[in-house]
Structures are given as C-alpha cells and as structure tokens.
Amino acid sequence: MTDQAHIETALRALLVARGAIDAHARWIAQAGGQSNMVWHLRGADDVVCKLYLNTAHNPLYANDPTAEFACLDALAGRGIAPTPIGFHLTELGAVLLYRYVAGQQWRADGAAVADLLGRIQSMPAPNGLRHLPVDGADILAQGDRMAPSAALSDLRPQARLLPSPDLVLVHTDVVPGNLILGADGLRLIDWQCPAIGDGVVDVASFLSPAMHLIYTGTDITHKTRQAFLDALPTGLAARYHALAPAYHWRMAAYCQWCAQQGRAGYAQAGQAEQDLLTSLQ
C-alpha cells in the first residue's frame, strides 16, 4: 500500500468516526494541487476533502488552512467560491471539507475572470488575514530574497512608487487550475493563500504566462488577455500597467526558485515570464 493510500485510509477512518463524512463515499484522488492532498468524495453529497501537508515556508504563496476556511465562510452564498462544510484538526494535519464544484477548468473567457475578481474585491475580508506589500520597491525586494540568477538580476526593473491603493481581499493565486466553470458560472477554488492587499496582485497572477504554462501547457492568448484588461475598472488596469514589470520580475524569480527545488516545468515557465518582462521594458 502506498503512503497516499495509508493516509487516505487513516483519514477516512478519522472523519467517519467524527461523523463528518458519508462512510460509504467513494474517494477519488484529485490531481493538480501543488501543496496539499485533495480528494473528491462521491456519496450522498459531493464533497472535497483537503488535507494540508506542506505548510513549510514558501517565498510567495502561503498555505494557511485557517485562512482558507475563513474566506470560504465569508464568501459562502456569493457565487464566488466553494461552500464550506467543516474544518477539522487531526493528527494527520488540518482538514477542510467543502462542496464539490462541478465543472471544467477555465479556458478562454477573460472578461468573466475580470468580473469575478471585481466581485471578490468588493467583499469585506475576514479578520486575521496577512497584509501584502503594495509598492514597487517592496515587490521587487521579495524577488531579491529568492536569489535570482545574475541574468535575471540584469532584467530587474526600476521600482515604481504609486499612490497607495485601496486595500481589498485578494486570492493571490488566480491561475487556470483554480478557476472552475460550471453550470452556475465561474468559481475560484484553493483559497489557502489569501491576503489583504492591492487588487493588482490578482490581475498580475492571472496574466502570468508562467502560470498558464504550468496549468494549461500554453500561454494566455492575446485575445483573452485583452478581453480581461478591457473588462477591468480603468484605474485597476492602469495600476497593473504601471506595476507589471515588478510583478512579472518577481514571478520570474519565483519560477527560478521553484526550478531549484526540482519542481517540473518551472524552468520553461520562468523563461516565458522573462520574455514577457523583456517586452514590457
């Protein structure tokens, strides 16, 4: 029996004993997660079971189970995120249960993503979320701490200091794998790294060629990119254009860091991010 099978068996027993899940549900392991183990539990109700395994330091993305549960709870019924069912602390790790979102991974509608981000940024954020840096110098400093290569350091843009933005709820990991299109519209899943910060964070995340390559194997198209930007509020789009070099340079540094950790695909993804960065300079 594999380690994953052992964990699944133990976790099932724990949750059934607590009366948290259907004892007869069929557990289907889900692919695509970068940090945690996730199953689709098919039974009387369709449920997602998420076990947090890797909560070690990541230079860009947190993996906070309590923050994810708080966001799902705050956004419940808003047509934005999955509906939470329960949160459990176990000897195997923290476990989040939420309603399964049936649908397909997002593919092409940039305007729909812009609309979803607008609705998220209009929501009050739950208490206790981390705060992100909002000016260009601090964003670039985060990239510096990932020890970028000399070649990438040569591409480091000048810092831009803009007026402070309104601080809003941000997801921070708006990538194709976390956007699910179902019968009720677009939903954003995997809320383990939310924050309070500049709405541009989610704009830059969605427009990252590296993240599109990782999750779809291809870059975002010009048509989708333009439809997304055109559907953003004018002020948010202008702020993105001003800060895009800093955000994409930081993402290129992150991709180099991931490649150094042995994560597949990130060397190629980082090159795509550098290509975009070069076109912006």
Rank of each mutant, 00 (worst) to 15 (best):
I196N: 05
L132R: 01
Q105L: 10
G177H: 03
G265Y: 14
A147V: 12
V200T: 00
R225G: 03
Q34R: 15
A237N: 03
A10F: 14
C71D: 03
S205I: 09
I214K: 02
D45I: 15
L276Y: 10
F206W: 05
D109G: 01
D219C: 09
S205K: 07
I21N: 05
L53D: 10
G103A: 07
L41Y: 10
I139V: 01
D190H: 09
L167I: 04
H212L: 07
G93N: 06
L276D: 03
Y52A: 00
H222Q: 12
Q158P: 07
T218E: 11
A204R: 02
H248I: 06
A44I: 15
Y247H: 12
P65H: 06
L167M: 06
L11W: 09
M251P: 00
G177C: 02
A159P: 00
G77N: 02
T2Y: 14
T66Y: 14
C255L: 04
P65D: 00
K223G: 13
Q256N: 05
Q158Y: 15
N36K: 09
A204T: 07
Y100F: 13
Y215N: 08
P176T: 00
Q256R: 08
D138H: 15
P165A: 01
P82L: 05
A56V: 07
Y52M: 05
H88Q: 00
P133Y: 12
A74C: 04
L213R: 12
E273F: 07
A269Q: 08
G199V: 04
V134C: 04
A253Q: 08
A227S: 11
I220H: 08
E8Y: 15
D166A: 12
A114P: 01
T218Q: 12
L169V: 09
W249C: 07
V48W: 08
S35N: 02
A102K: 14
R225F: 14
A242L: 03
L169K: 02
R78T: 10
I220V: 06
R18Y: 13
F87N: 00
M37A: 14
G177D: 07
G110P: 03
V38H: 09
R119G: 03
H131Q: 11
A94Q: 04
Q104S: 13
G86A: 05
V201E: 10
L15V: 07
R12H: 11
A70Q: 09
I214C: 08
P194H: 08
Y240T: 01
T224G: 01
G262D: 02
D46L: 08
P126D: 02
T66S: 09
H248S: 00
F206A: 06
W249I: 02
T9K: 10
N36E: 05
D64M: 05
G118P: 06
A253I: 08
A17Q: 14
I189T: 01
G217L: 10
R225N: 01
